[in-house]
Design a protein around this nucleic acid. Sequence first.
DNA 1: CAGTTTAACATGTATGCACAAGTAATTTTA
DNA 2: TAAAATTACTTGTGCATACATGTTAAACTG
Lengths: 364, 364
Amino acid sequence: MHKDSNQTKYSMLISYLKEEILLGRIKPGEQIPSENTLAKKLSLSRHTVRKAISMLANEGYVYTEHGRGTYCADRNKTRVETKNIGVITTYISEYIFPRVVQGIDRVLSENGYSIILKNTGNNTEKESAYLEEMLEKNIDGLIIEPTKSAMYTNNLKYYEALENHGIPYVFIHGYYQKMEDKPQVILDDEAGMYSVASYLTELGHREIIGIFKADDIQGINRHKGYARALARIGIPYNPDNVIWFYTEDRAVKPAATIRTMLENKHGIDAVACYNDEIAFKVYETLRDFGVRVPEDVSVTGYDDSYFSSNCPVKLTTVNHPKDMLGEAAARLLLEMMKNPAMGREQTRKVIVPELVVKDSCAKK
Amino acid sequence: MHKDSNQTKYSMLISYLKEEILLGRIKPGEQIPSENTLAKKLSLSRHTVRKAISMLANEGYVYTEHGRGTYCADRNKTRVETKNIGVITTYISEYIFPRVVQGIDRVLSENGYSIILKNTGNNTEKESAYLEEMLEKNIDGLIIEPTKSAMYTNNLKYYEALENHGIPYVFIHGYYQKMEDKPQVILDDEAGMYSVASYLTELGHREIIGIFKADDIQGINRHKGYARALARIGIPYNPDNVIWFYTEDRAVKPAATIRTMLENKHGIDAVACYNDEIAFKVYETLRDFGVRVPEDVSVTGYDDSYFSSNCPVKLTTVNHPKDMLGEAAARLLLEMMKNPAMGREQTRKVIVPELVVKDSCAKK
DNA sequence: CAGTTTAACATGTATGCACAAGTAATTTTA
DNA sequence: TAAAATTACTTGTGCATACATGTTAAACTG
């Protein structure tokens, strides 16, 4: 420290440390001496050292961590915090979305962040537009439910841009297959459907119809769980027992196909449905056909929604830890913002849902 | 200074001064009390006061002049459009909230705006905190569903501050009685319940039980419509036929009271319920008691939600133009931002809901 | 040896004191 | 009366001390 002496002590210390950092003698991430060490070495009071360091922190040269120490910042990467987090959702399942957003909001609000909300309506072009808008808005982080997660996406460039800008993001509820190593919080759909299908086989059912959604990764995974559960006890996979539908079909196709099966006397022991809404429709179709649930046919739903509890025969289903999903995503994002260099193992969180047994299944 | 006590002293002082500035009680250019004055008045050390002031200076709220004093900065001069609109909602009716937000989002997104979302969980203190946060975030406008709209509020100062800063705001779904001339988009709850109750009287019913929520303005207004419809055809108002409940009661009290009435052979021709959820529970209670709907007793809901369509006997109800409500609020706000000097007549929008006749009512 | 406790050390909050230095109004002085 | 000195304020710099709180690694314990 060899500066003009008509300056103040703290400003001398500031210029000294600044120089060390700018000349690369203290490297980004490197710890600088503790306040007490500096004070002793330079014969200053701790207060004076502290003032210098706090001003350096304000200018972005260093950052402090309570209880650990003070570190040299990487000045190329520091951006202005907006305290806003982007949240992009897709097609809104009315009974899932609000709770997930609530979970996210709870955690983020506690930490002084706000949500900027966008809905894509499962429209890929809107997803592009909103990702671009988020980049412009200088958000501090992003939580996104991918649009048509089982299909091809050409929005990869936006995710790269986010990475280049050092803006962390977390997939929620689904992911693109090209990006399966990216940060994500998802439900184990395969395990969920596996437990449902296993439950049905254990009740003695063999002709188990499966109804799955074809354009979401959730549908793909639930189908896997279904197939695995049947395979486990040696039931050969029968494509005639599987009904696939798309977002656009969902109000008609599943119920109509079941009706056709009934008319054609296709053997049915049980129906494992993609979700409660489908299960509710299947229940109504069976009832209208004079088939009793669960005495003649067992039916299962998925999501543990109001469809499951409002159905005259309460539907056995799989719970959907909506709040937890949102909270977990928000927590992961907060951690990533704190510690930008998190390993891949730490950024994938899988929540295993649980079977909820109600009244719609019986032994064969 | 009346902030939470688990904060530090200097941060309490910071929030106090920030509030004074944001609410316009200290005006730009005005001198704030000297460090010693503040220290003495608040029983703090000068150092603590100094720390608070230096942080405020860093954030641009004040500026200091050596030897002269500390002054309030003019933050309006640095304000730019953020293209962000604040949306504050309260207790989340899961089946209403997402659609309203969707409606708001559709209109705002079309115009290049984004939503910053906050939920108060019907907690007045959270409402304060979020209003303050919105003021800090430099939003371009605000749509807010008031918390506990039938009760007293002491958040008026924040609305005044919004006006001082030239930030337009719109109440949605409810309003405070002290602020009934402020911009708002609401449903005509009185008219809605009036049409339901009139429908029931026209079917020949006379002993009409009414179930209403006591802590929302909606409940108060629906009760008015109920009373007016009965009065119209000369039925005297009978308090024994009216059941009041609170947010905390809602799962138990309405159904329990109906059960008691049945046990006491209280005459019941029809039950007009506050909403579909209540109506669903009432239906179940009647069914369990062996009372047929609609042959013995007619039941009506309100909101045209999934409860109405999932009920074994589809419930006659009143539609809730959720999307329209959100859209109307967003449009009104956009107009106000364009033309800041809008007259009062133009800023109040009342949407009249419509009766939706289904299967739960019959002639007497 | 895995799990817990403890001690050492980091930053964070808060107080007290002393004096430096800039500003503005009042008082004194030539 | 005009310039200078005084005085009473303001913010700025600096030191000593105390205890609170978070982190980490070494020591201890079952």
